[in-house]
Write a protein that binds this DNA or RNA. Structure first.
Lengths: 164, 164
DNA sequence: CGTAACCTTGACGTACACGTAAAGGAAGGG
DNA sequence: CCCTTCCTTTACGTGTACGTCAAGGTTACG
């Protein structure tokens, strides 16, 4: 049996920046390895670092990104293309952070930040819309439940009348 | 120009149970005619009544159904197969109503009603789950906004310091 | 009765989001 | 060193939800 994860068991435990191979990430996020490679292909995940053998090494940040992508998909119903847009504007954020003390022009950074903020505000607006619609739906369903209960009540009375 | 909708203009206005042709339904619901036929094929819409020529005649109930289907799709992310399940249990409701004074056994009607109620409760549970997740997401996005604002603030100060 | 607008049933095509082999290289235990 | 497990890329397949013709019938106005 070839254990390999948890690298070298009790050999190099101390710093070990908690890098994860694709299988681990798949297990932890619930998506398949194929999906992770697919997201990378589509530009939703930045190409991760690699082991010499060519094995992908993911960070905890990557894991969070995958989870965020799933949320945007299943909760808000965005397509991967739309999610890529958002992810890209998030990337901008990181770039801004990276070039923090570099010579990059301030106005450019400001513009990128403003765009990122705008995207986020849009997402919030979408959420608010969905929240409102879902509350309405819930109310309708609740009315339906009441209706069912009334009918069930009706049946009860009928059966009592029948057995009397 | 061949107007045809609004049947016979000012010829037969009074009772006319407001039956709609497929084009009207498409316009009012925002889905295409193809989609309506597709839903019918898939059992999401009951085969509507027909004009002698074979033209489909939809009721207002059908329109409401289409709208409900779209909601379940886009808001809650159900597949058409899942929606069919729900729709079927809704059909049960109508059957129950129809067989109200017919000889159908009471216990059977009760069972169907209970199943319909159960399905509706499940849908409510799904909504509650989604609502919670979406509130969390919104909170995260709000934190992101704060972060962006802080950075923007920072840039302001930097530029003021630079011009001083 | 022509003709324009609307409809009918096929049947094939498409975009999205992956699934599923196939063939082979790399890592580590025994 | 071998064998198992995990990974790699390449490539074709699949399910969902429709879109898009094509060929032709129906309805109503002029």
């Amino acid at each position: 049996m070839g254990h390999k994860r948890q690298a070298s068991a009790s050999d190099t435990p101390p710093p070990e920046q908690a890098y994860l191979q694709i299988g681990e990430v798949a297990d932890r996020t619930g998506v398949t390895q194929r999906t992770l490679r697919f997201y990378e292909e589509k530009g939703l995940l930045k190409p991760p670092s690699r082991l010499e053998g060519g094995f992908r090494l993911y960070s905890e940040d990557d894991v969070r990104r995958v989870e965020q992508i799933k949320q945007l998909q299943t909760l808000l119903g965005f397509t991967l293309a739309e999610i890529k847009e958002m992810v890209d504007s998030h990337e901008v954020r990181m770039q801004v952070k990276a070039s923090y003390r570099k010579g990059a022009e301030i106005s450019e950074r400001r513009a990128k930040l403003l765009k990122a903020k705008e995207m986020t505000l849009k997402q919030i607006a979408v959420i608010d819309q969905k929240l409102a619609a879902m509350h309405e739906m819930k109310a309708e369903l609740a009315r339906k439940i009441d209706q069912y209960d009334a009918w069930l009540q009706n049946l009860e009375e009928q059966s009592r009348a029948g057995s009397r």
